[in-house]
Write a protein that binds this DNA or RNA. Structure first.
Length: 314
RNA sequence: UAAUAUUUC
């Protein structure tokens, strides 16, 4: 059964939902009964593909087959509802989890916290993190990472650092995600210098910055219209032996746009395409058009727009 | 065997 579940999961992760569904239905033929993992995999796979109704259907099917959902199942369902923007259903799922006698674990809490953050309900996110402690669950690095991200989205730099300090107070070692989120908070809060400090902190904490951290820092420079420094960070990426990705260039182009440096934006575009082989995506086009607009190069903006349509970028 | 967080906003 484990091998079949693993196969189901692989199909789901390869976005081959129909194949996964077929295999799921053939279990009986092989003399296998679906277990809780089989069902959870199907819920998760459908949820991740944005097929929330199918995910719900899988959950009902599970009940019909008298297989008891566990924490994995509920977490997957909460995540699925969150992805679909259905906050109430996510909350409802969390409650029914408790009613069904399945104690929410850290992952279930984290999943719902994330839904709150996604919906901009930071108060509820923090409240739930406190509630989890009251219920004897220990927030993990993901809990803190999610909360730091919540602060970033609210542009609350001070609170982001406060959460980061809480994390350390609780003897948790911040990982790259936490650092990148913290830099993102500095970016969104327009405090690039603190972002650079966090980058240094990463280095001194034996957590070499990854591309996420660098990209967030480029964005920090961009929002402060510090184009030159943004490109310095880009150089540092290369020195660190990392490969700049499309986000790197999009952030650079966006930075140029904010500072009305259209020429530089196109230089970055050129390097992105011709040196790294990254195709322009909708963010790239957005930033380019924005850059042209800000510099009153409307003709150029229309040209880019047409190129975007031609290349079928949605 | 399955569930949760970060960058281009």
């Amino acid at each position: 059964i484990r091998h079949y579940n693993a196969l189901l999961d692989a199909l789901g992760k390869a976005n081959r939902l129909d194949d996964a569904e077929s295999l799921f239905c053939e279990f009986e033929k092989y003399g296998l009964a679906h277990d809780v993992a089989s069902h959870s995999i199907m819920i998760s796979a459908n949820g991740k593909s944005g097929r929330i109704e199918d995910a719900e259907r899988c959950f009902r099917r599970m009940k019909k087959e008298n297989v008891k959902p566990n924490a994995f199942t509920y977490s997957a369902l909460i995540e699925a509802f969150g992805r679909a923007g259905k906050l109430q259903k996510a909350e409802e799922t969390f409650r029914s989890m408790i009613e069904d006698g399945v104690a929410p674990n850290v992952v279930a809490y984290n999943a719902l916290i994330k839904v709150y953050v996604k919906r901009g309900k930071n108060d509820k996110a923090f409240k739930l993190s406190e509630e989890m402690i009251k219920n004897g669950k220990v927030p993990d690095v993901i809990t803190y990472g999610t909360l730091i991200d919540a602060c970033a989205k609210a542009r609350d730099v001070e609170k982001a650092f406060k959460v980061f300090n809480d994390l350390k107070k609780n003897q948790i070692k911040p990982n790259r995600v936490c650092y990148a989120s913290l830099i993102d908070a500095c970016a969104k809060g327009k405090q690039p210098e603190r972002g650079f400090e966090v980058l240094e902190l990463m280095k001194s904490s034996k957590t070499p910055p990854d591309i996420f951290a660098y990209n967030a820092l480029i964005d920090a420079c961009g929002r402060a219209k510090m184009v030159h420094r943004a490109f310095q960070v880009y150089d540092e990426i290369l020195i660190a032996g990392l490969i700049p990705d499309r986000v790197t260039f999009n952030a650079l182009i966006s930075a140029c746009g904010r500072a009305r440096e259209v020429e530089k934006a196109f230089e970055a575009l050129d390097i992105m395409i011709n040196k790294y082989g990254h195709e322009a995506d909708r963010h790239t086009y957005n930033s380019l058009i924005d850059a042209c607009g800000k510099s009153e190069k409307m003709l150029k903006a229309f040209e880019i727009y047409n190129r975007m349509i031609k290349n079928n970028v949605k």
